[in-house]
C-alpha cells in the first residue's frame, strides 16, 4: 500500500536514462507504472531509484516506417488499441491491447512496459510474438534488436539487461491477417488471460504459406509454438486444418497451474484459443 523510499529521476533523454541505470544497480525503469507500482506498494519490489522515462521526447509515437510500424516506449495500451496503423497492420496487437486491464489501466500503462514486465498472463506478449515483432533495446553500448520470440525468457524475466530500456517495438507489415483471443480470469475476455493465443497467417493464393501462433497464460512464459504454424503451412486453412494444427498448441510449453486452471485445462484451452485466433486471423 505504501512503497518504501526511493530516489526519483525523470531524465530528458534515453542516454541519460541509460546512464542512471548503468550507474545504479538498484534503479528500475518506469513508463506507465501500472506493473511496477503495485509491486512496490506491496513492497514485493523496492528499487533504490525510479527512472521515470515519461518525460523523454519522441517515445510516445506510433510510426509508419514503410515495411514495419514502430510503437514507442510511451505509447499507452489505449493508443495501441485505437491506432489505425496497428489495427490495419497488426490487428492481433490492437485486439490484445484492447483486452489488457481496464480503461484506466489502458490509459496509463504502456505496450512496451507490459512487454518488458513479461507477465506470464499478459496479452500483448503473445501478439508481438505471433506478429514476428522486433524489440529494440537501448543500453550503454547503444541499441540492439531482439526477436520477440526470444524476448520472453521466463516468468517476469525478459531478455533486457538491467541497464537496458525497451524503447520501441517494431512490427513487420505483411501477411493476410492476425488475431488475438483469450479466456479471462473472470470468464469472458476480462482480466488477465487464463489462456490466450495470437495468430498471424499469410495466405496469398488460397494456400497458407506462413503462419505463427503464440500462446500466453498457460505456461512459464508467453511463447511461439512453431509446430502449430508448421502444421498449417501448405493447407487451405480449413476448420479441419486449423483443428489439426491447434492440437500442437502446447508443444514445447512448460505448463503452469494456477488458481484459474490446472495444467490439463490450460493445455486444452491453448488448443481452443489457438484455433479461435487462427480462425479469426483467417476470417478477414
Amino acid at each position: 500500500m505504501y512503497p518504501r523510499k526511493f530516489d526519483y529521476t525523470a531524465p530528458q533523454t534515453i542516454a541519460d536514462a541509460v546512464a542512471v541505470l548503468a550507474a545504479d544497480e538498484g534503479a528500475k525503469v518506469m513508463a506507465g507504472g501500472m506493473s511496477l507500482l503495485p509491486l512496490m506498494k506491496m513492497r514485493l519490489l523496492s528499487p533504490a531509484t525510479i527512472v521515470d522515462i515519461g518525460r523523454i521526447d519522441g517515445l510516445d509515437r506510433i510510426e509508419d516506417r514503410g515495411d514495419h510500424i514502430a510503437i514507442g516506449a510511451l505509447v499507452r495500451h489505449a493508443e495501441t488499441a485505437a491506432s489505425d496503423l496497428v489495427r490495419v497492420h497488426a490487428p492481433a496487437l490492437a485486439q490484445a491491447a484492447s483486452l489488457t486491464g481496464d480503461v484506466q489501466v489502458r490509459n496509463k500503462g504502456t505496450t512496451c512496459g507490459s512487454l518488458a514486465h513479461a507477465d506470464i498472463a499478459a496479452d500483448q506478449t503473445a501478439a508481438v510474438i505471433a506478429l514476428g515483432a522486433t524489440m529494440v533495446a537501448n543500453g550503454p553500448g547503444g541499441t540492439r534488436e531482439i526477436a520477440a520470440a526470444d524476448f520472453f525468457v521466463d516468468t517476469l524475466t525478459s531478455a533486457l539487461a538491467p541497464d537496458e530500456i525497451l524503447t520501441e517495438v517494431r512490427i513487420p507489415k505483411g501477411g493476410s491477417g492476425s488475431a488475438y483471443d483469450k479466456l479471462g480470469r473472470r470468464g469472458g475476455r476480462s482480466d488477465y488471460a487464463v489462456a490466450g493465443a495470437a495468430a498471424w497467417v499469410d495466405k496469398p493464393n488460397g494456400t497458407i504459406t506462413a503462419a505463427r501462433v503464440a500462446v500466453t497464460g498457460i505456461g512459464t512464459k508467453p511463447m511461439l509454438v512453431d509446430a502449430v504454424g508448421a502444421a498449417l503451412v501448405g493447407t487451405d486453412g480449413s476448420p479441419e486444418a486449423i483443428a489439426a494444427a491447434a492440437e500442437h498448441a502446447t508443444e514445447g510449453v512448460t505448463l503452469l497451474e494456477d488458481l484459474y486452471g490446472s495444467e490439463e485445462y490450460k493445455a486444452h484451452l491453448a488448443k481452443v484459443y489457438a484455433a479461435r485466433a487462427l480462425t479469426a486471423a483467417l476470417g478477414d
Binding site: M42, D102, R186, G187, S190, Y192, L259
Partner: peptide, 16 residues
C-alpha cells in the same frame, strides 16, 4: 491464503 488481493479474489464487475 492464495487469493489475497482483488487480483485473485475477483468480485463481479459491471462487465460480468
Amino acid at each position: 491464503l492464495l487469493s489475497s488481493s482483488l487480483m485473485d479474489y475477483p468480485i463481479p464487475t459491471a462487465a460480468d
